[in-house]
């Protein structure tokens, strides 16, 4: 979880079932990225919870981080990518984890009243994403289809 201002960009590589959530302020040209691994912090089985990896706690934590940088929550928008289904089987907890992550991220964005302006989610390919706060563009690269902008 991190925050950048233009002209810096922020990226995360090799997203599979994880969802990369970018929250950005178009006018202030500042953005934050959090890498969501699991839909719900109730799935956490340890006492020390890393809030950044769960949809229901990570997006909120990123919003707080941006607020600390002087961003008003009202001005925030979101772009997301990831949540693919890399394999068709797994343990009970991992089946459909990609779609469940996407669903949980969208639910949380709705709860926080952050509009989702673009997404590239689902499928069965890994993604590397890079966000450019200067132009509010998310670059999404896959092995088979190259790079696209959303």
């Amino acid at each position: 979880m991190n925050v950048v201002k233009e002209p810096m960009t922020i990226r995360t590589s090799g997203l599979g079932s994880c969802v990369g959530v970018v929250l950005y302020d178009q006018t202030k040209k500042i953005a934050g990225l959090v890498h969501i691994m699991l839909p719900d912090s109730n799935l956490g089985k340890s006492d020390q919870v890393n809030v950044a990896k769960f949809a229901d706690t990570g997006i909120y934590a990123l919003m707080e981080l941006l607020k600390a940088e002087g961003v008003r929550p009202m001005g925030l928008k979101a772009k997301i990518a990831g949540g693919s289904q890399m394999f068709q089987f797994g343990s009970n907890d991992t089946i459909r984890i990609g779609p469940r992550n996407i669903e949980a991220v969208k639910k949380e964005l709705k709860r926080l009243s952050i509009p989702l302006t673009a997404e590239d989610t689902g499928g069965s390919s890994g993604r590397t994403i890079e966000f450019d706060p200067a132009h509010s563009i998310l670059h999404v690269r896959t092995v088979s289809q190259g790079t696209k902008e959303i």
Binding site: G14, M86, T94, G126
Partner: peptide, 13 residues
């Protein structure tokens, strides 16, 4: 595919 995307599937548990 990308190794991160593949191997992270085994890290969910």
């Amino acid at each position: 595919d990308m190794v991160g995307a593949i191997v992270s599937f085994g890290l969910i548990e």
